[in-house]
């Protein structure tokens, strides 16, 4: 009872990266709260799934193995969590801010009348004093996220309702195992006790899932463009530079919204979080939502016509200029000095 739960997404028995990152965060929260870390996984091919999950310091792993549970569908997975949470009364429940977690989380939180905060960029434990009722709440989950177009950072709490639920995007938390031989208990769930036949009213009739071709999350160098790049054609300059120096191309949300680059390249709170050794920001103004996804880059170069662009203040190098002039020079002098 009152433990930290992580919902683990699985496909054919493979646990999603974001779930492993959340197990890492969940372990440290459980340590701070002096409680246990529990994980839930539902799907197929879960025979050896504990080998993937336990090393992250999981004390109890709940497994719901049923061919009807993979691929993910809203209602059966929601029923599973709702009924399991009613029994186990977790204090915290975390899931990935993926198309699965963002579909599932609100449904579960509504049924349990518990609060949910989407796309958190930080999770901490802290106290809260409610002066109106003169009450102190200890060890609440601080759910930290940018809000209002990224102009402010809000800390959200759920003082009176449990579980305290949060979703987090892939890449925001670091993935780190606790110990290879960590011993936890496996509990096989009796699926029909949690899920009813009426949960299968939506039928999947076709599904095309591609392996992501773009790998910005693990790229060592990223050349990233914002709205200031100006056009899809100008974005080609970024691809040229990336090609020459061995980088991936990323984009801010404004650039993706404007159609300059695809969603799979989006960096920021509502995209991917990256930590490359070099981040070259081209025509990016640097709203907090974008910075949340890249500010841990080891080095940052900002190329912007606006000397006061917010991103310049977190950049190691600032080039005030037009990318159409600066990028060809970078290519030229890279080539000249590497031969």
């Amino acid at each position: 009872m009152n433990n930290v739960f992580v919902y683990c997404e699985s496909e054919e028995g493979i646990i999603a990266e974001v779930s492993l990152e959340l197990l890492t965060k969940g372990r440290s929260l459980a340590d701070m709260l002096n409680c246990r870390l529990e994980a839930v996984v539902a799907g197929v091919n879960l025979k050896d799934v504990e080998k993937q999950i336990m090393p992250f310091g999981v004390d109890v792993l709940h497994i719901a193995e049923d061919s009807r549970l993979d691929p993910y569908q809203t209602l059966p997975h929601a029923s599973l969590l709702i009924n399991l949470f009613k029994e186990e009364q977790p204090q915290i429940a975390l899931m990935g801010a993926t198309s699965t977690g963002r579909d599932l989380g609100p449904r579960v939180s509504s049924a349990l009348h518990s609060g949910l905060t989407a796309d958190c960029t930080g999770l901490e434990i802290g106290d809260h004093e409610d002066k109106k009722v003169n009450k102190v709440y200890e060890n609440l989950l601080y759910q930290i996220r940018p809000a209002f177009g990224g102009n402010i950072i809000a800390t959200i709490i759920n003082p009176d309702h449990r579980p305290q639920m949060a979703t987090v995007r892939e890449g925001v938390m670091k993935k780190e195992t606790r110990s290879a031989g960590y011993k936890g208990e496996v509990r096989m769930l009796d699926v029909n006790k949690y899920i009813s036949p009426e949960d299968f009213v939506v039928k999947i009739i076709d599904r095309h899932i591609e392996k992501s071709k773009v790998n910005i999350k693990n790229a060592g160098i990223i050349v990233s463009g914002g709205y200031g790049v100006g056009s899809k054609e100008n974005f080609n300059l970024l691809y040229e530079l990336a090609e020459v120096i061995g980088a991936e191309v990323g984009a801010s949300r404004a650039a993706v919204d404007a159609g300059f680059a695809g969603h799979e390249r989006q960096i920021g709170q509502t995209g991917v979080t990256v930590r490359p050794k070099l981040y070259i920001a081209c025509g990016i103004s640097g709203q907090i939502q974008h910075r949340a996804g890249m500010e841990e880059s080891a080095q940052i170069i900002s190329i912007n016509t606006d000397p006061d662009a917010p991103i310049n203040s977190i950049a190691d190098y600032v080039i005030v200029g037009d990318i159409a002039e600066v990028i060809p020079k970078m290519i030229k002098y890279y080539k000249k000095n590497t031969k």
Binding site: G115, H128, N151, I156, P159
Partner: peptide
């Protein structure tokens, strides 16, 4: 259920 505990304006650590 969710309450806003704190709102911080974004201050850039220059």
């Amino acid at each position: 259920p969710t309450k806003v505990k704190k709102i911080e304006n974004v201050v850039l650590q220059a």
